[in-house]
């Protein structure tokens, strides 16, 4: 799946601008960005719900806008599944079987049983967690290779959330599919995703393997004799400061910064474990508003 030069303006405002990336199957990709960064718009454009102002989305070389049949390979699961409140479980099954020729009914019932989801007359009767599970089960049964999830764990309790994430991981482990998750829950994506797309002001700021990204940065705790020198402040991102104690993110591979710090003879210069959240803050800025 390839996203090439996609731009989208809504009400004359750029929501996405010149987005390029491609995704292969067999991975879990996290789309992260601050609220209003354009995560949902990106996912909706990738499924053809919205027309891009410029650019194209292709699967196996076919544009999803010119050849919509190719969208049998993509399924979008929105953050709330209000569309089928009045449908029974069976009716939804009939609907999806008729849309996706590769729909695997046996697999569907297998998952329903495993997560002890009952068949109901109206899916509106499902609890919030059941609805989330149900839309995932449906999505996984369609046989689509690219599964786009918008905030799949929003508002779920811990137990259901774990179930949702586990079925998601098994899906990737068992089949040749890719799951694209938009989320602001960085702690969840931390170990689950292998790639991260960061969106900032409608632009893709980076598409990296998480491990690659972690090798680029280093999180350290510093205690200076006095305050941090001004010239050093320009080189690092300060996550936190209490008195003379600083927590900063710095470039791991730049000996210059390392050297600068050593020159100030800090009282403490210690590496801390680097979390996705730290990179997020370093890349997209602003300690607050992460979630």
């Amino acid at each position: 799946m390839k996203i090439s030069r996609v731009s989208k303006t809504i009400h004359g405002k750029y929501i996405l601008s010149d987005i390029n990336f491609s995704i292969e199957t067999g991975s879990i990709i996290g789309v992260i960005g601050r609220n209003g960064a354009g995560k949902t718009t990106l996912l909706r454009t990738m499924t053809g719900i919205l027309d891009p102002t410029k650019g194209d989305v292709t699967i196996d070389g076919y544009s999803i806008f010119k050849k919509p049949q190719i969208k049998e390979q993509v399924i979008f699961v929105p953050d709330s599944s209000e569309a089928f409140k009045n449908y029974s479980t069976k009716e939804i099954l009939t609907l999806y079987k008729n849309i996706y020729p590769k729909f695997d009914e046996e697999y569907f019932y297998g998952l329903m049983e495993r997560f002890s989801l009952p068949s109901v007359k109206k899916t509106g009767a499902y609890s919030k967690g059941m609805k989330a599970l149900f839309s995932l089960i449906i999505a996984f049964s369609t046989g689509a290779r690219y599964i786009l999830l918008d905030e799949p764990t929003d508002g779920l309790d811990v137990i259901v959330k774990k179930q949702v994430l586990q079925i998601l991981i098994e899906e990737v482990a068992a089949k040749d599919v890719s799951i694209i998750i938009s989320s602001h829950r960085l702690d969840e994506l931390e170990f689950m995703a292998n790639k991260i797309i960061m969106i900032k002001d409608g632009k893709v700021d980076s598409l990296y393997e998480i491990e690659e990204m972690k090798e680029m940065y280093k999180k350290v705790q510093l205690v200076f004799k006095e305050t941090m020198p001004q010239n050093l402040k320009k080189e690092v991102t300060i996550l936190d400061q209490t008195g003379r104690v600083y927590t900063v993110i710095m470039d791991r591979n730049d000996p210059k910064i390392q050297h600068m710090i050593e020159e100030t003879e800090p009282l403490l210069f210690e590496e801390l474990p680097l979390l996705l959240e730290d990179i997020f803050v370093a890349k997209l800025g602003g300690v607050s508003h992460v979630s």
Binding site: T47, G48, P68, K71, I75, F76, S80, A83, I99, Y100
Partner: peptide, 17 residues
């Protein structure tokens, strides 16, 4: 008015269809 339009437009059918 509802989000059902998101569903229909995400389907593997052309808008004409």
């Amino acid at each position: 008015n509802t989000r059902r339009n998101d569903f229909t437009f995400s389907l593997p059918f052309s808008r004409k269809d």
